[in-house]
Amino acid sequence: MKKIGVLAQQGAFVEHIAVLRCLEVEAFPVRVAEELEGLDGLIIPGGESTSIGILMEEYALVEPVRRLAKQGFPIMGTCAGMILMAKRISGLHLEPLGAMDMDVRRNAFGRQVESFETEVEIPVIGEPPFHAVFIRAPYIEKVGDGVDILARLPNGSGVAARQGSMVALAFHPELTNDLRLHSYFLDIVCGKG
């Protein structure tokens, strides 16, 4: 059985663990660097990117996660996770992980009263469209070679991307009952995606 770690510094990690267990993989919270050992994949959840980033630095998780990203290890980031995986971030004074060659704008849609849910077409998972929940969400401003945008909103904002074994989502698949994006990531973990 595959083992997936979910960074548990702060945020909605319990929800990811619950989804992964529905998909019959082993899922664990990761709070310190030793807990990264023996994993087949890693999820960086939603939460506050500053809180997660600061606690990753304090407990020496930044360099190990950067190393894993360089080795082509499967990593999926949602919302704050996507922000941390970017190479460049607007609106944050924190050093991102730089795992994916993309520029991400933080709180890109505005404050909480602008948070929204909507249907998003994501060709790699097929029909029907994915019901996506965006909370003080970021979007992708620019990507480098080797990064594919998997989904855009009607106004053109990139909200899902893939580079090698890494996936970044601006929204929260862990807050809905649609398991397709977690399954998509697990296919990558299993070498089938």
Binding site: A8, Q9, Q10, G11, A12, F13, V14, E15, G46, G47, E48, S51, C79, A80, Q112, V113, E114, S115, F116, E117, T118, V133, F134, I135, R136, H172, L175
Partner: peptide, 20 residues
């Protein structure tokens, strides 16, 4: 695009979890 929904409201609280 639906704003201010129950999911979006509860969702922000979920993102604050584990935090101070």
């Amino acid at each position: 695009m639906d704003k201010g929904t129950w999911t979006v409201k509860c969702g922000l609280a979920q993102m604050l979890k584990g935090g101070v």
